[in-house]
Amino acid sequence: MEDVLRPLVVFGGALVLAWLIAWAADRALHRLDARHPETPMWELLRRGRVPLQAVLFVTLVRGFFGSTRLAKNDRETVDLWLTVIIIGASAWLILRILAAITETVASRYAGVALDPARARRVRTQLTLIQRLVTAVVSVIAAAAVLLQFPGMETFGSSMLASAGVLGIVAGVAAQSTLGNLFAGLSIAFGDMVRIGDTVIVDDEYGTVDEIAISYLVVRTWDERRITMPVSYFTSKPFENWSRGGSQLTGTVYFHLDHLAPIEEIRSKTEELVRANDHWDGRSWSLWVTDTTPTTIEVRAAATARTADDVWTLRCDLREQLLIWLRTEHPYALPGIRLAQDAQTGPDRVTTADLSKSEV
């Protein structure tokens, strides 16, 4: 009977005590969260309740396992695996605490920062630091687990003999990985690109959705995700439409006939721009920027608050001006000149005329 009661008391007592301590810590964090609603740290720290219970339970079991009189001949093996579990649970708890601290700092800074770009910069830096620390903690935990096994010491001693050759091989093999690692740190603290920035990379327009230690994810306008190594952004040029402020100037180009009424088009452009909700009120313009033997190039420009607004403004302006030109001044659209008459001027056939003749 005693052989049954001893394990029950040890395991049951460890479970109850671990649950009580974790419950008390959770209640204390809940009260702190109620007293300080301005910071989410205390609520986020409550996510560590389960790993805290695991650490406490396994630590108590390991400390009192001898009292159970179980596995007397395999005590070293049991202690070994209990230690491995403690290391894993402790790493889990540390990562939960780290995530809570990172999210708290990012949210508090975002709440007080007047510049959204600086808030995105801080979030990017914190995200990369969190992932770097996560990698370090994971490596340390894995190394601590491996060192618990006696065989690993012999393995490590044999590897030291060829450390020079292995170092060269590892350096060559990890060149790309290390390059991306340092590129990620350069991005985080060099402020080249941040989470939420609007960028154009390889002719793809999108928003930076995620920045990891070795890669970066761009979400395109059609909701595709492009994953690229972070070293790309330190070695090749790219457009960052959010750097230095989110305000942009959008341009729309038209190829019109030489007879196009520029002043009327300029007046209509002003009317359309001022009536558009996406215009930020800063500036607009319309100029003839180039000529060819058959057409002129007209550029309409207008400013907007964000990249999304400037895209919509450009599309609206292009569509509305084309409709107005087709309705009010169809002769201003490019046509094909058939003949030249010194008295009557050139005869022209527009696209609309060609469509009617085919019918």
Results as ranks from 00 to 15, higher is better:
Pro37Asp: 08
Asn73Thr: 15
Arg27Gln: 14
His30Val: 06
Leu56Thr: 13
Thr39Ala: 06
Glu103Pro: 01
Val58Asn: 00
Thr83Leu: 03
Arg46Glu: 00
Ser90Trp: 10
Gly48Asp: 03
Ala71Thr: 15
Val78Leu: 05
Phe64Met: 09
Leu52Asp: 04
Ile86Cys: 06
Val50Arg: 05
His36Val: 09
Arg46Ala: 01
Leu32Ile: 12
Thr102Glu: 13
Ala91Ser: 15
Val84Leu: 10
Gly48Gln: 02
Ala100Gln: 04
Gly63Ile: 08
Arg49Gly: 00
Leu80His: 09
Arg69Tyr: 13
Ile87Lys: 07
Pro40Gly: 04
Asp74Thr: 15
Trp42Asn: 05
His36Asp: 01
Arg62Val: 10
Arg27Ile: 10
Leu95Asn: 14
Asp33Val: 02
Leu82Val: 05
Ser67Met: 13
Gly66Leu: 08
Ser90Gly: 14
Arg75Met: 15
Arg49Phe: 02
Phe57Asp: 01
Gly88Tyr: 09
Ala89Gln: 01
Arg69Phe: 14
Pro37Trp: 14
Pro37Lys: 08
Val58Trp: 08
Ala100Cys: 03
Arg96Glu: 14
Ile94Ser: 14
Arg49Cys: 00
Ser67Gly: 11
Pro40His: 05
Ala89Asn: 09
Asp33Arg: 09
Val55Leu: 10
Leu82Ala: 06
Trp81Lys: 02
Thr102Tyr: 15
Ile85Leu: 13
Leu80Trp: 08
Arg31Pro: 02
Ile85Gly: 10
Arg46Pro: 00
Ser67Glu: 05
Ser90Gln: 12
Leu80Phe: 03
